[in-house]
Simulated scan of single mutants.
Amino acid sequence: MTQERTPTILATSGGLIRGQRTEVAFGPLLHHAIELSGATRPSLVYVGTAMGDGSAQGLRMIEAGQAAGIPVRLLKLFPMPNVDDFDDYLLSHDVVWVGGGSVANLLALWRLHGLDSALTRAWQAGVVLGGVSAGSLCWHQGGTTDSFSPELTPVTNGLALLPYSNGVHYDSEPRRRPLFQELIAAGTLADGYATEDGTGLVFRGTTLVEAVTEIKDKRAYSVRRSGEGVQEESLPTRLLANG
């Protein structure tokens, strides 16, 4: 594992792309999470709780890792945890990548098994935490989710490693942007940050240090309560190599 000790999170609305010889491939955002670890021989843990630890997605991630030259191992909770000690397992890797799906179910199961606490300790020890959609929302205080029904609703019980709200798929799902703003204006969600598809937010500790994108001209945003409404500000967003 890398000696980098700064707690780091890459929260995204992207990371995987269509592969040439595999169904999916690591995109520039996921490669950036690996680069942030500073490891010379990086390894990655994929956590697919939000989609019920589906074996097909796990296999796709392993194959994508093989194509990228990055060892990928799985952390599963179904039908039971596949490791005896979460801390040892997580700390023996450089990056944790969390897939999308139901953030509500993910949070409930992580807390039931104590994985939430283990992930917090891994973050504090310098393991890079990253993910897409539910794998982005989970690190924040809350955001918008379709975990409960086709209609978007707020989720407010995230792990809160980052003391902000998070808006994902900000440009691709029409209701995401207005609801995120409404919830912040009402005080239901804290001030926060949002990502269009293909963009990500790099946090060192709890400080946002950079917005990045794997798709040219895509954006990330700061959204803050202002009076009875909100102030939305487009953030400088750096295009990653090969993006």
Rank of each mutant, 00 (worst) to 15 (best):
V155S: 03
L189W: 15
G131M: 01
L109K: 15
I70N: 02
R175K: 14
L183G: 07
G100V: 00
Q141G: 06
R18G: 00
F78M: 15
L106D: 07
E214L: 01
I62P: 07
G101Y: 01
G187E: 08
A220D: 13
Q20E: 14
Y170P: 10
S234N: 10
N242C: 10
G229A: 10
R121K: 10
T188I: 14
T206I: 14
G143N: 03
V230R: 06
F180M: 08
A241L: 09
S43T: 15
T195I: 11
T156F: 08
P154A: 14
T199Q: 00
W97N: 12
K216Y: 11
P174T: 02
W97P: 03
Q124F: 03
G187K: 05
G200C: 06
G143A: 08
A220K: 05
I215F: 02
V96M: 09
H140W: 00
F86M: 06
Y193W: 14
E210P: 07
L74H: 07
L16Q: 03
A211G: 09
A108H: 09
E35H: 09
T120H: 01
P28W: 01
A56Y: 13
I34E: 02
G54F: 13
T144W: 00
T195K: 07
L129A: 10
T188L: 14
R21W: 07
L29Y: 00
V98G: 04
T153C: 12
A220N: 12
T213E: 13
V132D: 12
Y221F: 15
M80E: 07
G135K: 00
M51T: 09
D116T: 06
D53L: 06
S234E: 15
L44I: 07
M61F: 11
G131K: 05
G158A: 04
G58D: 05
A33N: 07
R238H: 07
G14Q: 02
R5G: 02
T153E: 15
Y193C: 11
A104V: 08
K76S: 14
S37E: 09
S226I: 08
Y164H: 09
R238L: 13
V230S: 07
S149G: 10
M80Q: 12
P174Y: 03
I62E: 15
W110D: 02
L74K: 12
T207G: 11
I62D: 12
P7Y: 11
G200L: 06
V45D: 01
Q3T: 10
D53V: 04
Y193V: 02
A190P: 10
V47P: 01
L189G: 06
G158C: 08
